[in-house]
Design a protein around this nucleic acid. Structure first.
Lengths: 336, 336
DNA sequence: ATGAAAGCGCTAACAA
DNA sequence: TTGTTAGCGCTTTCAT
């Protein structure tokens, strides 16, 4: 039992608890060197660790932040978590990471939980738009929050986003630069704006280079590997293209398999470009050319915005620029 | 600011705070249906959310658990997190996930932090053995903890482990069953017990089948893909084996690449078996045969042990059995 | 069946 | 330079 409290330290050091509290909070202006050191020494000796809960109760600051991710198993998100965590720690906050499993229900639960746990702010990432309950949770009680990768109406919220259209554009430009003209694109779920925008930018780039993207060459994916595999297998058996843009890397993996089974060589007969640059893509053979989102950096930035919001009540939207990472899965069209 | 407190509810419902507290905690034996409902209604109307920090201060229970993983970017750990999180939530705890990045320093920091945050218990996973400071943190203050995948002296601690030797054995048996005799094994870092035990079990299986594992066919890896690639490339160019056991899946990926560049076909000329069964291995072509650890389940179980420890002070060690998952990267030796 | 009051470990006026 | 005291939001005896 008997956990050490500020009282024990005070008694042991022969001072008042206020004094102890002062050195704890480094509010030591005009405090004798001697007392300070004595207190510090006693703390050290007894291995005292302050109770942050009690502290939070009076300061109204828990120094905890909540992070809700839609799916920790998607390799995209651990990077986000790391960035977020590193920044949070640097700023003396700790992070409660929650996994909503893409379920609105769970998201809402976590939102409530985090508020009950008195987090100082919430970083919310999920692919769907905010449910009514979620929005409510966020707004009632005015808890500071920042949105990751998805927007919202209104204008006093913070968010970090990727310029998905630009990303799609880079992919399209890369492919046309290589001389491809028979090109397909596999999209994510219909209702995800990200995916729509990637397609949009992609089409834009093709258009600028007078390449036509046939409607039947727009393949419906769902960001999952297995679906991508099935769709691609069917498509590639019946159509003749020299390049495919997959709206995320996981789907690119599925396309690899489909191509392999049909006997299509990558990149000799088919160039593939992905999107995300998740770590596993360098394990593919050939290594995947893709569009990188600076996920780690985005996580950092998001927490930075969140803390700014908490500490200065400032709101900001920041948009990240994607970059093209050329590896081995795309090459110049062969004219033979 | 005016966040709603139990007082507001009491006033609004015309009862004492004790009564409100009672319905909050469902200690309603001998309480009039009427009052109960009134309180509930007011809570609902005002959208009251109790402050868990304040609660924790008096009950000495934060209902928070800490989970320290060595590297969230290693696809092995998100699964662990999910299992842990699901079980924790089911039991009304929330989880603070921390990433120690394989740095003892960070691990020690987190340990301190978690204790200050008054978590009720800690699940600690990391590949090294406990540092002195870590051990101290864990033991002083008697915070309940369970160790994931690594042991310790003493006997009143809980832990969940994999039978790594059995895993290695399964791998070895699979390969010899397929008729392989010229076999190599790529290990993890020298000082990791896991890796040593896998090798041990592997050798055991070979021995039982009168297959000899040459010392020079034991390759030093470090659980990383890149190193595995380099080591394997050098090895495969100069030696003739028909099968390799990689002590984790990430290294198997590196070996794939090496084999590919040398022009060795998998599995026709070389069978490969991995260890872990991380999600990405089904993206490999051919799909990797491997030894599965039930990571998700291990995470669940670990939290279960932790909560048992917290609530009943019971200690237990549980050992998981690995299973062989046969996919496409291993096949019967060809006698030609 | 309900309430008053003490106290959890800490911070922050205010006093001295 | 240091201490006294009230109070954060809640639970928990102990009364009533």
């Amino acid at each position: 039992m008997g956990k050490l409290t500020i009282k024990d330290i005070a008694r042991e050091a022969g001072v008042s608890i206020t004094t102890v509290s002062r050195v704890l909070n480094k509010k030591e202006e005009g405090m004798s060197q001697e007392t300070r050191e004595k207190v510090l020494r006693v703390m050290e000796e007894l291995n005292y660790q302050p109770n942050k809960l009690a502290r939070g109760l009076v300061t109204k600051r828990s120094n905890m932040l909540g992070l809700i991710v839609p799916n920790i198993s998607n390799p995209f998100f651990p990077e986000l978590c790391r960035g977020a965590e590193d920044e949070a720690n640097k700023r003396q906050y700790s992070l409660i990471i929650c996994n909503s499993d893409d379920q609105t229900q769970k998201e809402e639960n976590y939102l409530r939980l985090l508020k009950e746990q008195q987090v100082d702010g919430i970083l919310l990432s999920s692919k769907d738009r905010l449910s009514k309950t979620s929005k409510n949770q966020l707004q009632s009680g005015k808890i500071p929050y920042v949105l990751f990768d998805r927007g919202e109406e209104g204008n006093n919220y913070s968010g970090v986003f990727l310029d998905n259209e630009k990303g799609g554009y880079l992919a399209g430009k890369h492919l046309t630069d290589l001389g491809h003209t028979k090109i397909a694109c596999m999209t994510g779920p219909q209702d995800i704006r990200n995916s729509q925008q990637r397609l949009l930018g992609f089409q834009q780039a093709l258009m600028e280079n007078s390449v036509n993207l046939l409607g039947s060459f727009i393949l419906d994916g769902d960001f999952q590997m297995d679906t991508a595999y099935r769709v691609a297998k069917d498509f590639l058996q019946n159509n003749n293209v020299t390049a495919i843009f997959a709206c995320n890397d996981l789907m690119a993996c599925g396309i690899y398999r489909a191509a392999h089974e049909i006997g299509i060589q990558i990149p000799e007969q088919l160039s593939i470009i992905g999107f995300d640059d998740i770590p596993l893509v360098t394990a593919l053979i050939p290594k995947l050319t893709t569009i990188r989102q600076g996920t780690y950096e985005m996580g950092r930035k998001a927490i930075e915005l969140l803390i700014n919001k908490i500490e200065n009540n400032s709101s900001e939207e920041v948009v990240f620029e994607p970059t093209l990472i050329v590896r081995e899965s795309t090459e110049q069209i062969r004219r033979d």
